[in-house]
Design a protein around this nucleic acid. Structure first.
Lengths: 217, 217
DNA sequence: CCGATCATGTAATTAGTTACATGATTCG
DNA sequence: CGAATCATGTAACTAATTACATGATCGG
């Protein structure tokens, strides 16, 4: 946990755009979209672990097109002004795959502002710290619900996974449903699973923190 | 999970600096330090949930001083060039308390680049996805160890906490050590506990992902 | 015709990083 | 003497956000 500083010979990366840019490109690979619709898609898929703003999308799309990673066409509409629809090219697909294969993001640590405020809780009143933990719990509960919905929608049985984690016996997975073949599960669903596990961990930890800090369970 | 966009009347915040700026100010409240030493302190305390670079610290400190939240003096040294030592003022302490009390960061969602790469795993090969999950596990294991060290150093018994979480019975906490009075535990230690719980959740989830995606446990 | 929604974008600003510049001291 | 470390900082840049500008269309 040494502060990352200014040395370290640069390992030849294939990163030619920002991570956010690649996020937009990745969504673009699902099929031709306008900036507006891509923003909606992002809100429904990646925004809970990678926030994107509309403005940001609108600035990334022309850059992507400028690199030859997408083409754009203006499409007239009946009920609203023309939309500019972007369509990924093969070059775009290749560039994205290259990024996936070569850019290592394991070292990237996200910023956790809530943790920051907890760290400095001693400068605040116990009441305020209690309120902070309460808010934290509520937002973790909401995040858990949100992720559960996504998983239910993808027919992933969270309870069965829980049994598996405890017992280590893969047979537990097949107890109340048809065994699922590896690869049958979409990697996209797994990000929701990660979100769920994190939200659960947060809730447990908020309880522990309340116990330790305020003697309340 | 709607993308945060450009509306929403601004709720009168008391946020006059960036969150990173307040992080620096918060560390400054521990006592007079130079930029160099503050960077070291940050690396040992908050950097695992709030990365700060030396350059950033050096740009924040004069801003803080300029607001009257710290004074600075040049201190001569025997073995190295003079250092500029910053000392928080009462106004700085008040400003920090105000920020803690009024600025709500619950909505701030961190960016998780690894999750982003997992989300798009379908564009990559199964081998590469397996490698990604492996790297993820290793970094989570390391994070867990790091946090355990901090907690051991603060004499917090993680095993006892685990029993408490499972049983819900606070008596479990007192089984093998003197009961700890509420408030006796430093909030700073809790950020390590959060890091630990998250790291554990990540490890479980990597296992689940490997099982579901690749049929491997 | 008025407000809401769809749709596209730009301008200005903030936050933060990387890379560079500088100089003294200490250790081998 | 040369490399490493201590120490401070700046300049240039990248990433991303907030706020603003524009115009069409549709329902009441």
């Amino acid at each position: 946990m040494i502060p990352r500083s200014d040395d370290l010979g640069n390992e030849a990366t294939t990163k030619v755009m920002s991570t956010g840019g690649y996020a937009v490109l990745g969504l673009l690979l699902d099929g031709p979209v306008s900036g507006w619709d891509l923003a909606i898609a992002a809100g429904r898929s990646i925004s809970h672990f990678w926030p994107v703003t509309r403005a940001h999308i609108y600035t990334e799309l022309p850059k992507i097109a400028h690199r030859g990673w997408a083409t754009s066409t203006s499409v007239a509409q009946r009920h609203s002004p023309d939309k500019r629809v972007y369509r990924a090219t093969e070059a775009g697909r290749d560039a994205f795959r290259l990024w996936l294969a070569t850019v290592d993001l394991t070292e990237e640590r996200g910023r956790q502002p809530l943790q920051l405020q907890l760290f400095f809780a001693a400068h605040s009143t116990p009441e305020h710290t209690a309120a902070l933990l309460d808010k934290w719990r509520r937002s973790a509960e909401q995040a858990e619900l949100h992720c559960r919905e996504i998983l239910a929608h993808k027919s992933i049985d969270v309870a069965a996974l829980g049994r598996l984690a405890l017992s280590g016996d893969p047979a537990d997975l097949t107890r109340d449903r048809e065994p699922r073949k590896p690869g049958e599960v979409d990697a996209r669903a797994l990000t929701a699973l990660f979100g769920l596990r994190r939200a659960q961990a947060d809730q447990i930890c908020v309880s522990e923190a309340q116990q330790l800090l305020l003697g309340k369970l």
